[in-house]
């Protein structure tokens, strides 16, 4: 990073903290602190909903996924618009009209206090950990590619976020989310422009897409019905819909956003904004990853994008082997570049279809040869470093940024990555503090707490959860595989929490005992499915369906049983 990049990055941090603190005026009472006194416009709430979901992992991981695997990950989001429509018609009016502050407060009104407390504790456990990962993932990447100290990087992201979230509550979180979303979108647009301009003379955008498409990277839809396949149109539409129903309908970090809107219809509009925009936005981020792949076909790419163990391998007894692989890679990469240029030329002209077929076959072979060398290099790094979790997909986009983006824009891109991490974690910290204070502290420890006291304790809870996230980050940074564990950890609970809300809204006879026992059974069943050897291969998107169905079924049966007993 050059001085201008530092100026952009530091300028961004100062601007975001200053505007967050400015938004913190007039948030002295609990309603203003937790719900912004229901004064926010739908578009700001809608952008905040999207910003909370769009973390740095999305920005860097999704482009990496586009690079390695094409755009088929977009199917993950196919259920989202369906879920938004269902939520707008069912759960959102219930929440808004009942005047609750947290999603779990509604569960006490409908069932009992034990169901509310269990749901809140599940949320705190799962989101407290994931908040740490939201900060850790970009911090690890930035510290490796920029050579920064990992703890300092985590604190540089965490501390400003804690500051404005603590002072400003939900209002500061929402307005900074809007600004951070603008930074992310601006930076991504700049990256796409640099990617397109970086294609060689004579190779246009459509040529580059044809070349990437010849390897299947633009095939978005998979119609096979295969439970073990992670992303298909069916897992996306059905599993994804259940996931979105649970995430947007029952997760405090999302519910709190749309409870701040001026009216019920504005709450709904803020969710429908995601329904309209989310799939195209994710498709564009994935396409940026595919474009990065096309870019690196025509420009020199490193053999491995994650340099963390390179020095270790070079100093080991297998340094000569590594050097030989590097030389082989450079030769294969050059061969592939020639094949890609030939294919781009052949795709551009309709003169000779036979020529295009031959060029395509040659390019496919050349790409397979490059992938083969890379796979051997990864195996060697794993062998020498004993780091089984080593992967470099998440480093592709940052490598492009640092190597090929012009000065100034590098700072903007790093600011965008930091921005995504801050906007996602601020929403989580705010929601964690709200659930801690309203569902646990005020409900169980101090029901007579005054408004001022509740706001004060919320500020302390924000600091607690922020520091907890930073500690989890430092801990997770040492163990790369932990990040994946925490990421899938959330999906073990989503379906069961959704099941409780389905019982609340859809099953008239459901009671507190049914909901409580149903929820525990659902969580246990999903854990068994996730870890039992016979069912382990089932894709995690289906856990949401399984959890919701089990909770609804068991909850309904137990409710009937306990009612008969009582009668």
């Amino acid at each position: 990073m050059r001085p201008l990049d530092w100026i952009v990055l530091v300028g961004y941090l100062v601007w975001i903290v200053w505007s967050g603190l400015r938004a913190s005026r007039r948030t002295a009472d609990a309603d203003a602190y937790f719900r912004a006194s229901r004064t926010l416009p739908w578009w700001a709430v809608g952008l905040s909903v999207m910003a909370t979901q769009l973390s740095a992992i999305t920005l860097v991981g999704t482009t990496g996924q586009g690079y390695a695997d094409g755009i088929r990950f977009v199917q993950f989001y196919f259920g989202l618009p369906i879920a938004m429509v269902i939520l707008c018609l069912t759960i959102v009016p219930f929440f808004y009209r009942s005047g609750v502050y947290t999603a779990y407060e509604y569960l006490e009104r409908r069932f009992d206090v034990k169901t509310r407390t269990l749901a809140a504790i599940v949320f705190l456990a799962q989101r407290g950990l994931s908040c740490g990962v939201i900060i850790a993932a970009p911090a690890i990447i930035l510290s490796i590619v920029l050579g920064w100290n990992i703890v300092a990087t985590i604190l540089a992201i965490g501390v400003p976020t804690i500051a404005y979230t603590m002072f400003g509550g939900v209002k500061a979180v929402t307005w900074t989310d809007v600004k951070q979303m603008a930074v992310v979108l601006g930076a991504m647009t700049a990256a796409v422009v640099v990617l397109i301009l970086g294609l060689p003379h004579g190779v246009g955008l459509t040529d580059a897409l044809h070349v990437a498409g010849s390897l299947g990277k633009l095939r978005a839809i998979d119609f096979r019905f295969d439970l073990s396949e992670k992303y298909t149109i069916w897992s996306g539409l059905i599993g994804g819909a259940f996931l979105s129903l649970s995430y947007f309908g029952c997760d405090q970090s999302q519910v709190q956003r749309y409870l701040t809107a001026k009216s019920l219809d504005e709450s709904r509009q803020s969710l429908l904004l995601s329904g309209f925009v989310k799939i195209p936005l994710q498709a564009l981020i994935l396409l940026t990853g595919v474009l990065t792949f096309a870019f690196f076909l025509f420009n020199r790419a490193p053999m491995l994008f994650n340099p963390v163990h390179e020095a270790e391998v070079r100093a080991s007894g297998r340094a000569a082997e590594y050097q030989a692989l590097l030389e082989e890679y450079q030769a294969r990469d050059a061969d592939r570049r020639v094949a890609a240029e030939r294919l781009a030329g052949a795709e551009g002209s309709d003169l000779n279809p036979m020529l295009a077929t031959l060029a395509r076959a040659a390019f496919t072979d050349a790409d397979a040869a490059v992938r083969d060398v890379r796979a051997r290099a990864v195996a060697l790094v794993k062998d020498v470093s004993h780091d089984e979790g080593y992967a470099d997909v998440n480093y592709v986009f940052p490598t492009f940024i640092l190597t090929y983006m012009p000065v100034g824009l590098v700072g903007l891109m790093i600011a965008a990555i930091v921005s995504a991490a801050m906007s996602a974690s601020s929403g989580e910290m705010n929601a964690l503090a709200t659930a801690t204070v309203l569902d646990l502290y005020k409900r169980h420890l101090n029901p007579r707490a005054t408004d001022a006291r509740v706001v004060l304790v919320s500020k302390l809870a924000t600091v607690f959860w922020g520091l907890f996230a930073c500690v989890v980050s430092v801990f997770a940074a040492d163990r790369g595989s932990l990040i994946e564990v925490v990421n899938t950890f959330g999906s073990l609970f989503y379906g069961s929490v959704l099941g409780v809300f389905i019982l609340a809204l859809g099953v008239k006879r459901a009671n507190g005992d049914g909901a409580f026992i149903g929820m525990i059974t659902g969580i246990v069943v999903v854990f068994v499915v996730a870890f039992h050897p016979a069912t382990r291969s089932i894709s995690y998107l289906w856990y949401n369906v399984i959890g919701a169905v089990v909770v609804t079924g068991v909850g309904w049966a137990v409710s009937l049983g306990t009612q008969r007993k009582a009668a």
């Binding site: 018609l89 459509t206 498409g213 095939r219 978005a220 429908l272 309209f276 799939i279």
Partner: peptide, 30 residues
């Protein structure tokens, strides 16, 4: 602005169009 059933239908219609476009992109650039 009051939301009508048409707005919800529009969300789903846009989704179908987006999925169809993605399908077309996959076939066109194959």
């Amino acid at each position: 602005m009051r939301l009508s059933p048409r707005t919800y239908a529009l969300v789903l219609v846009v989704e179908v169009l987006v999925i169809a476009t993605l399908y077309w992109i996959g076939r066109h650039f194959a």
